[in-house]
Amino acid sequence: MGVRKILLIVGSCLALSAAAQAVAAEPIVRNQLFGLGGRFEASLTPAFSVFDKYTRHMTISAGLGYFFNDYIGLEFEGGYAVLHGDRSLLKEIVSTAVDTLQGIKKLPLSDLKYMTWFVQGGLVLCPLYGKLELSSELAVSFHLYFVGGAGVADWRYHQLGDALPDDFERIEVDYGVKPTFYFGGGLRFHIARAWSLRLEIRDEFFYDKYEAEHKVATTVEPKTITDFNHVTLVRLSMGWSF
């Protein structure tokens, strides 16, 4: 995505926010008890990966956000993947092709990299406010929001060893710290004046140009894999605003 596109998206968000404020003389949803404008929010977020291709993650992160008004805010966070590694699907594929993989160290597949830690920041857009009633007994206010931003993350992958399939996952390669981007969306449920619960789905990705290996007849030759490496996380976050 080019710089122009990013600027266009940010500009559109700001324009929408300004338009909304111009219209907002009288709230459409009455008794809007939970505003975001002018408040900071500290959050603690456990997460786990979904739609995994070859890797899996469980992460924990802490963040701080600030909302300029009810619709737009900024957030920064850092986190660590307490569980990171390969799915059993990849181990299974490797274990059934030991002869084919002889001599190959780097699998020619995309989405092989998993992240260990990350630091990132971005924009939060909250276009929708609503109230839910749970079994006609309990009223819960919520915001629907979208996030997008960038940062850096440390990525790693497993290389194949000489004695397959046992050697797979014994050799971890530090792929380095890469510029990493994210976008996503979710619901913020307001539990009390200062406390909220966020349920969010977020895609973390980086552009990966990876020098792998493959076999041509019986000869191992280099092969370049270029693709975006994705990790999709479901995040359950507890936030405290002040």
């Binding site: 709230p27 459409i28 949803v29 109230k131 079994s135």
Partner: peptide, 19 residues
């Protein structure tokens, strides 16, 4: 469907939904 809700998009209009 225990949850019924109302929401507004940028405070422009009112929507109704159940989950």
């Amino acid at each position: 469907s225990p949850i019924y809700g109302k929401w507004s998009l940028f405070n422009w209009g009112l929507g109704h939904a159940d989950i």
